[in-house]
Structures are given as C-alpha cells and as structure tokens.
Amino acid sequence: MRKLFPHPYLSVTLFVAWILLVNSAALGSALVALVLAAALPHVTAAYWPGRAHIRHPLALARYVALVLWDVLTANIHVARLILFTPADQLQSAWISVPVDLQSPEALALLAGTITLTPGTLTAEFSADSKTLLIHALHAPDPDAIRDDIKSRYEARLKRIFA
C-alpha cells in the first residue's frame, strides 16, 4: 500500500479533484481517478523529496477558516485604500520578516497566506529561507505588520507542522 501510494494526501486530493472535474461519480470516472491517483505521485516523484508532517489536522482546518475570514476583511481594507485614498498618500514599504519555520510546506503556506491577506504581498525569499521579503501597500507602521504576521500566522503554523 505504502509503495503504491507514497503520498496519501496527494493521492486523495487527485482522486477527489478528478471526480469533481469530470463532474460525475460514475464507475468509469472513479476508475480513471484511481489510476491517476496511483500514477501521478510516481511520475512527479522528483518534486516530492520529503513528506509534510501535519501534527494537528484540526488546527489546520481552523487555520484555513481563519485565513478565509482574513481574506474577506483584507479585501474590504484594500478596496477602501484603492478607492478612497489618494494614490500619492499611500505609504508603501518593503518589510523583511525573519521566520523560523523549518518545513518547506509551512513556508509556502505562510507565503501564500501573506499574499492573500491585508495589504501585504510576499515578493522574495532569502537564499537560506530564513527571511521573507514583503511589500505592504499602506504601512504607516511596518513593525506592527511584522509582529502581526509572526503572532497571527507563523505561531499557528509552527504548532501545526512538526
């Protein structure tokens, strides 16, 4: 079993994605989905050197809900900045955020979260993956944004990923 499905999460995701994409749960599409779920992880094995260790799946679900909520509030915030703040009054800033997440999956998740949430955007990593470069649309106080990212997202991700 382990040999056939080296990445169980990936296989399950592929299976469900295929069923939803063809939009039918007939036996034929389920078989094709099963073949794809077995074959694709092997074909793309070079891109999956390690495996993510998720310690608390429930905490991950809570994290996703938190991020979705933040995406909503972030958009109202950004929309107000775009519509009502004159363009020359926006104080954009580059912020470098030190991170001590170990696993690449957690880092990728953090970078994606930052891009989707309030007025910030991940632009670059440092060569040793210990620092993220972030661009903020309107940051009168860059340090507050850095602390907010560290306490709101990074602390939670550190608990979720071993």
């Binding site: 580059w94 030190p98 670059e124 990593f125 440092s126 060569a127 620092t131 470069l133």
Partner: peptide, 13 residues
Amino acid sequence: DPLPPTSTKADWA
C-alpha cells in the same frame, strides 16, 4: 528597488 537587509547573513535569493 532599494531592499531592506535580511535577518541572516544570506542575501535575497
């Protein structure tokens, strides 16, 4: 663009 320094010795990737 002028970039802020990283937190460690390694430079931006």
